[in-house]
């Protein structure tokens, strides 16, 4: 059984949603982000999205944009992130790892070369923010050849008929965006989102993970009732950019993840 399948099936058995954490790699620097990821995993993250910074992150809100800008200014690039990913995948063989970026970064590295490399270092898949169903073939092919999942997105704006097509073609899990807009912490409308997630779940053979705007245990708790996975990014990065020295921020991040991990458990 492939690793993502195993993770989601184990979560189902434990009656909880999978906790998926996005990390801006290279923020505030490569070494610190490796420590942050390690902290997230030890505090209960099931899957890590390794965010590769791009100069023009058109789908991101201010928190991740700022982190990307700083990461790039420190010389972060895809080869360095792949080196880190290789170390992490060896140290945490039970954890799922998804490479997360914009198409230009992946295309520039070479899609076939990249997929070969990801397989070799033991990553589980790729998510390209700006790669809708219509454009996915060029990346889906090398992913398939290397046993990697290409994670697809759906949004509240996606008509059901289109969502069905996306989900029928999906691999690993489907990333359901909670709101129309960019990434970031905000007020969510829980009822609408729950309803949307329920419809998606009825129509999908792969797990549905919900992301965008989740900033605390309460929000995670509500979504976990329906979603198979809960994705947290900006809230994690925001804490990493908070007050105090980096060890203090890591401690705060550990508390956040621990709280999230507790709250993805469904109440009986």
């Amino acid at each position: 059984m492939d690793k993502l399948k195993k993770i989601f099936s184990q979560c189902r058995q434990e009656n909880r949603a999978a906790l998926i954490i996005f990390c801006s790699c290279g923020y505030p620097d490569m070494e610190s982000s490796e420590r942050a990821i390690e902290t997230a995993i030890k505090a209960g993250a099931d899957i890590i999205e390794l965010g590769v910074p791009f100069s023009d992150p058109m789908a991101d809100g201010s928190v991740i944009r700022k982190a990307s800008e700083i990461a790039i200014s420190k010389g972060t690039n895809l080869p360095k992130i792949l080196d880190m990913a290789e170390r992490l995948a060896i140290r945490f063989p039970e954890t799922g790892f998804i490479l997360f970026s914009y198409m230009n970064i992946l295309y520039h590295y070479g899609l076939t070369k990249l997929c070969g490399k990801l397989k070799k270092i033991g990553l589980d898949g790729i998510l390209a923010v700006d790669l809708p169903l219509e454009e996915k073939a060029e990346l889906a092919q090398p992913c398939k050849e290397n046993g990697l999942h290409l994670v697809a997105l759906v949004s509240p704006a996606t008509p059901l008929e289109r969502a069905r097509k996306i989900m029928a073609d999906a691999s690993g899990f489907v990333y359901s965006v909670n709101v129309c807009g960019v990434t970031g912490v905000r007020d969510l409308h829980p009822e609408e989102i729950s309803q949307h997630l329920a419809v998606l779940k009825e129509n999908s053979a792969v797990p549905i993970a919900a992301g965008f705007g989740i900033n605390d245990g309460q929000a995670a708790q509500r979504l976990s009732r329906i979603a198979d996975g809960v994705i947290v990014g900006s809230a994690f990065i925001k804490i990493l950019s908070g007050a105090g020295d980096f060890s203090q921020r890591l401690e705060a991040a550990r508390e956040l993840i621990t709280d999230l991990a507790k709250n993805v458990r469904r109440q009986p």
């Binding site: 700006d130 809708p132 704006a157 289109r162």
Partner: peptide, 19 residues
């Protein structure tokens, strides 16, 4: 046809596809 040979296309976040 949304492309010009290999160029063009619709490389946007899913949220914009319906728009």
């Amino acid at each position: 046809n949304t492309h010009y040979g290999i160029y063009g296309g619709q490389y946007v976040a899913e949220t914009l596809m319906p728009a």
